[in-house]
Nucleic acid binder design. Structure first.
Lengths: 248, 248
DNA sequence: GGGGAGAGATGCCGC
DNA sequence: GCGGCATTTCTCCCC
């Protein structure tokens, strides 16, 4: 009933009852834990925040930092085990072969509730928004750039924007919403290779443009050695436009 | 004092007091919010979990899913504003030019506490562990592979393992702890280019090996066309070894 | 389900 | 600070 540290039985009943009711559970507690799955991890004793959601995902947050340090994905199985001196919280996922075991040595406070939330985040300012913007404002690339229908794109893999210049040369544009690193020129190169092959065009007759707010020095060199050009385009967050929520 | 919905004043006092005491705060509440910064985002009304940590980061969790949908990084400034009908929670970061505004229309429950936690996660099974393992067990690559001191590596950028075969040819190994995709062969290529240049060696005299548990078909083709080889190495999680906690 | 690429990626380390 | 890269990355989209 009552241990030196805390009333284990009451908390175990509370946890099991809330799990059964598919409530969200948040616990402030002293605990230590191990993770085993895609990697192995351990965390020594300390006071932190445990979150169990109705979808059976598990999050462990330390009192600082943006990210959970230990976690299990939705669909895991949760068990609460009475170890007399402490509570053992086991979360296991047979399909993913993952396991977390948390030794809870003291519960500071616990909060449980059913939460109703059907809303989805609506985001604007993605790379897709940026390429849409370029498609609608081709003069950002150059006076004579004429984008063509984007429908064809998926046939040759995902290409942000492509079209023709006044000489009739094919132009492929790769967008990056943040500073472009060394992978960007190589990605552009791969798209152009694929396009050249599938259209039966000489690869040297396709022009490549990397559009981004900035570019690292290394990436600039690579781009140049591949014969492509950089075009500075402001990140889409500053292109004030609306985007509809994703329905899903 | 008492609105139709909830006792705003009591909650505002509680929040301000806890913020002042640098406690961790978790709130179950009905809310809607917007984010503005590197992108723009909004989330319509719903019941969710708000977390405010002592380091002044902010997390918003919906009752499903592993990740926070709206967040602010540590060091942001938090303000609690009484709007009579609702509480406005503002988190702003001047340096990053980011802002979150949360309209809290109902508080279901709130939990605050000081949390003591100095522990750090100890992780094993990273790519670094994998390359260490290969360095210590070069026979995994081939009978005649001789790894050399890893001290030199940083001089030419980060190369997982490199050494010589019995003919004296330089061998560069790139490790991936999960299935290798198309970026892996290109990364290997970049390392070898850099190494060839800095050592004044003909690039064709350097052998490249991609070590990973598996590889996609595309990546295999790219690797072959670059003249490099794939070596199947099990992911490091299954190499049962110990790793010391990182001190930091 | 695999493959490929974006993300408000984040975080780490090295220069 | 930038740069390059790993991450138990996660997530989405498409084949």
């Amino acid at each position: 009933m009552d241990s030196d540290k805390f009333d284990i039985n009451w908390y175990i009943d509370k946890l099991n009852s809330s799990l059964k009711k598919k409530q969200a559970i948040v616990i402030f507690c002293e605990c230590s834990m191990i993770y085993s799955g895609r990697a192995e991890a351990s965390l020594e004793q300390g006071e932190r925040i445990l979150i169990l959601k109705p979808d059976r995902c598990l999050l462990v947050h330390q009192p600082y930092g943006n990210n959970s340090v230990i976690y299990m994905k939705p669909g895991s199985e949760v068990k609460v085990i009475d170890m007399k001196d402490y509570i053992l919280l086991k979360s296991s996922n047979m399909i993913l072969h993952e396991l977390v075991e948390i030794k809870i040595t003291k519960i500071i406070e616990i909060m449980t509730s059913h939460l109703n939330d059907a809303a989805k985040v609506c985001l604007f300012g993605t790379e897709k928004d940026m390429s849409d913007y370029i498609y609608d404002h081709p003069e950002l690339i150059s006076k004579d750039f004429k984008p063509v229908s984007r429908e064809e794109q998926t046939k040759y893999g995902y290409i942000d924007v492509f079209g023709y210049d006044k000489t009739g040369s094919l132009v492929v544009i790769e967008c990056k919403r943040t500073k472009a690193g060394p992978s960007a020129p190589q990605q552009l190169r791969r798209y152009i290779e694929r396009l050249a092959k599938s259209k039966g065009i000489n690869i040297n007759n396709i022009k490549g443009i990397l559009a981004a707010p900035s570019i690292t020095q290394n990436a600039r060199h690579m781009l140049k050695s591949l014969g492509y050009k950089f075009k500075k385009i402001e990140p889409p967050a500053y292109m004030k436009r609306k985007k509809n929520p994703k329905v899903n």
